[in-house]
Write a protein that binds this DNA or RNA. Structure first.
Lengths: 239, 239
DNA sequence: GAATAACAACCTGTCATACAGGTTTTCAGG
DNA sequence: CCTGAAAACCTGTATGACAGGTTGTTATTC
């Protein structure tokens, strides 16, 4: 047996990985911006001296991560920042039970305490209105849980957007998928109309604080909201 | 010009997307755990009634996101949670200038204020030791910036690990790539030995607070550390 | 001369086939 | 029971083919 455990050489990263790197490298070195076109598969095939199969798998992989956009007939283009890949990672973690819903909520709470404060400080009037509108729509569609949930999600994403930091938006949006799977449970735990309306009131309070531009108050309401949500999930027996 | 911006209909999700969904669906419905094997490409080909090309591109895409592990001769297996995809998304955002380094630091600060507090509360003795060790190694390799950086990164990742919430680990680790690209700039801004040693002292203070199990103190030191780091980057003209 | 329609060139999407190597299973021989 | 080699299966890569979408060019027509 050799004393080397594995570090001396990676036998071969594989041609596809190499191609992926070449493409991302191309984006970097050419300073491409979203919407800019990438080389065609044929061109990449010649440049890397590999088969089209390999190049295609590389393009397809980047497309799956939403780093590039592909469509038939057109060349691939650099993509705008998108949640796609991150959502899939989180979903994968949840479905394979490597992370728990509660852990996701802890992260969400941490992040949204910040986004809500930033939103209070940096929101435009339009953004404040959009946030308030989502809260209002929650109340209006009160009898339709599905709709309440979608407005709830939109509410949190709107706050993240108003933080004016796309990284926060990215992360918050990535968690929306998980929310869609657990939201109803929390809703049902709030058995009475009163409890459910109180939860909606919580959202309105947050929206008001953002409108008023009071980051402290906004964060307080957000914290309260999350604490109650987590409690609701725990009561329902979500690990 | 049509009034429709884009939503009317997705003409066809494409066979590959369908295949990707089928595979993730398989993982979900079969309740597969990390390490469990997936169907072979041939089996998937038959099941979905598409060519091997399509199935392969689907597998490869999931592999690129590190949701599955592939290697020659063996069937693909469900992967352990990994930062791969998330890192690439962040990197893509940075290189295409859709997000700024400063924005990443804001997110890091937000998250690590929490991880450090959780670490102080939940760390095992072993974890506390690992954190302290990284801080010590920073001081020991003081004359070798590259090494200091790697120990710095390991330090933050160790804290995230000690938070016992893999989602935090995931995010913190995803940012490490960005750190590797900007760390040296901050280091050089601390022109004197004194300033550099003070920065290392900051890390030791954090490690101490975690060892003592004092979440408040730990968070305070972490906040201070980030504020200084951001200041250093701003002084260096990083947008 | 300008609008337009047909066409050519190029590009991606999918399929079929082939073969080189790696991995697991099987099974014959000891 | 153990061993070792062949067989069966699997993934990695290459090649060629064709359908269908997109774009730029050219020829036709008004």
């Amino acid at each position: 047996m050799q004393e080397q455990t594995d570090p001396p050489d990676e036998p071969s990263p594989g041609l596809v990985s190499t191609a992926i790197q070449a493409i991302t490298q191309h984006i970097r070195s050419e300073g491409l911006a979203p919407g800019d076109p990438l080389p065609s598969e044929a061109a990449m095939t010649r440049q890397l001296n590999v088969s089209r199969t390999v190049v295609r798998e590389a393009f397809r992989s980047l497309s799956a991560m939403r780093l590039i956009d592909m469509s038939a007939g057109r060349r691939a283009t650099v993509a705008k920042l998108d949640t796609g890949a991150m959502s899939m990672v989180i979903e994968h973690g949840i479905t394979t039970q490597q992370i728990s819903v509660q852990q996701v909520y802890d992260v969400r709470r941490t992040i949204e305490m910040r986004t809500v404060a930033l939103a209070a400080l940096r929101r435009t009037d339009q953004e404040a209105a959009a946030i308030a509108r989502s809260a209002r729509q929650m109340r209006e569609s009160f009898r339709n849980p599905e709709a309440v949930m979608e407005h709830d999600i939109a509410f949190h994403e709107a706050i993240a957007a108003a933080s004016h930091n796309p990284v926060f938006s990215l992360i918050v949006t990535a968690f929306s998928g998980v929310t869609r799977r657990t939201w109803v449970i929390g809703w049902r735990t709030r058995s009475s109309d009163e409890a459910q309306l109180k939860m909606i009131k919580g959202h309105e309070d947050i929206a008001d604080a953002i409108l008023k531009g009071d980051p402290r108050l906004a964060a307080e309401h957000m914290a309260e909201h999350f604490d109650k949500s987590v409690k609701a999930l725990l009561d329902a027996g979500i690990a």
